[in-house]
């Protein structure tokens, strides 16, 4: 909630030079106390949070594009109203998160610029196309389902503004997942062509959804530190496993087949075993070589450029009003 400048604390110095502050900070984190914007924090903690929260915000904003693609073609008025509400929520989630990132001393303009120049990343999942209406079902069910798995522990993140934004987001997110599952349910109970459409969507979205949890624990360079700082509560692989465990029975209920020949229930561990993820695909998409990377960024750039006159007009109007009030 604080403006820039207000919260620029003397944490520029390496944490090693401030052992007593660092110890006090870790003590607070260990005691499950929240860190608030004006509190001292290690520069690396601030940097990690800015990176993570802004990536998260960008993902919400870019995430509107694949679904927005179907607003005008939703099969019924009810589905259209639901999809509009969902996409509007995603915009809202992006805004809550940008505000949370700004409390760390980075400006909105900088964040937007990092997205548009490709300097900042967003979730790899949104670089896949939405080819059929069933994709809207699969996104709600799988993509929002995976997002919820990731986000629920973030409600307990050590950084107060991020945790508070996540509480609000999680409250809104469960409708997203349910409306997606309902779309899949309708299709899977429909004609053969509709069932095929649902299966095709599951085939295309399953593996990219598993990739949403990020690299495996052995290759995740930020995990250990983020866990010590209580930004993260579970590792990528732990969350991925939870997601598979809850989602496979949901697919079975729909009568759909998860596209993984190695998927099997392990009686002993009480978990599903699943096949190897194609990490080469993941890194290619992250690098910008996914099916829709270029299209997504072009759409954001276009929206930004075409909205420029609105931002300028609103600012000019506000100036005029302020002058009139001053003269009166």
């Amino acid at each position: 909630m604080y403006t820039q400048g207000l919260d620029q604390r003397g944490d520029g110095k390496a944490a090693a030079d401030r052992p007593e502050l660092l110890a006090r900070f870790q003590e607070k984190v260990d005691a499950e106390e929240k860190i608030e914007p004006k509190d001292w924090m290690p520069a690396e903690y601030r940097k990690t949070l800015v990176r993570q929260i802004s990536q998260h915000a960008h993902s919400e904003i870019v995430g509107m594009l694949p679904e927005g693609n179907w607003i005008t073609r939703a099969p019924t008025l009810k589905r259209k109203a639901i999809l509009l509400a969902k996409v509007q929520d995603e915009a809202g989630h992006g805004l809550y998160l940008y505000s949370a990132a700004e409390t760390l001393g980075v400006s909105r303009d900088e964040l937007v610029e990092q997205l548009l120049t490709g300097k900042a990343k967003y979730s790899s999942i949104f670089n896949y196309p939405t080819l059929t209406w069933a994709d809207i079902g699969a996104i709600g069910w799988l993509v929002d389902g995976a997002a919820i798995m990731n986000q629920i522990p973030l409600c307990r993140c050590s950084y107060g503004p991020y945790a508070r934004a996540m509480v609000r987001i999680c409250k809104e997110e469960s409708f997203h997942q349910r409306q997606g599952y309902e779309i899949m349910l309708m299709l899977s109970r429909g004609t053969d062509a509709q069932k095929d459409m649902a299966q095709d969507a599951l085939n295309r979205w399953w593996w990219p959804s598993l990739m949403m949890f990020g690299p495996g624990d052995a290759d995740s360079k930020h995990t250990a530190q983020s866990m010590a700082w209580k930004i993260k509560r579970f590792t990528n692989d732990e969350l991925r496993q939870k997601f598979v465990d809850v989602t496979v029975p949901q697919a079975e209920f729909l009568g759909l087949k998860v596209p993984d020949p190695d998927l099997r229930w392990n009686e002993e561990t009480g978990h599903y075993e699943f096949g190897e993820i194609d990490w080469e695909e993941f890194y290619q998409v992250l690098k910008g070589n996914g099916p829709c990377n270029r299209e997504r960024l072009e759409a954001r750039q276009k929206a930004h450029d075409e909205g420029a006159w609105v931002r300028e007009a609103a600012a000019a109007y506000a100036d005029k009003q302020a002058r009139r009030r001053a003269a009166a």
């Binding site: 700004e102 508070r164 934004a165 609000r168 609103a314 109007y317």
Partner: peptide, 25 residues
């Protein structure tokens, strides 16, 4: 109760945005 923050050109616009952003439900 404080619920969050937002950017707006002026206070009137901030009210409009707050309505869209923080009272959708």
């Amino acid at each position: 109760r404080h619920v969050g923050s937002l950017h707006a050109a002026d206070a009137d616009m901030a009210l409009d945005h707050a309505r869209d952003l923080y009272t959708r439900r």
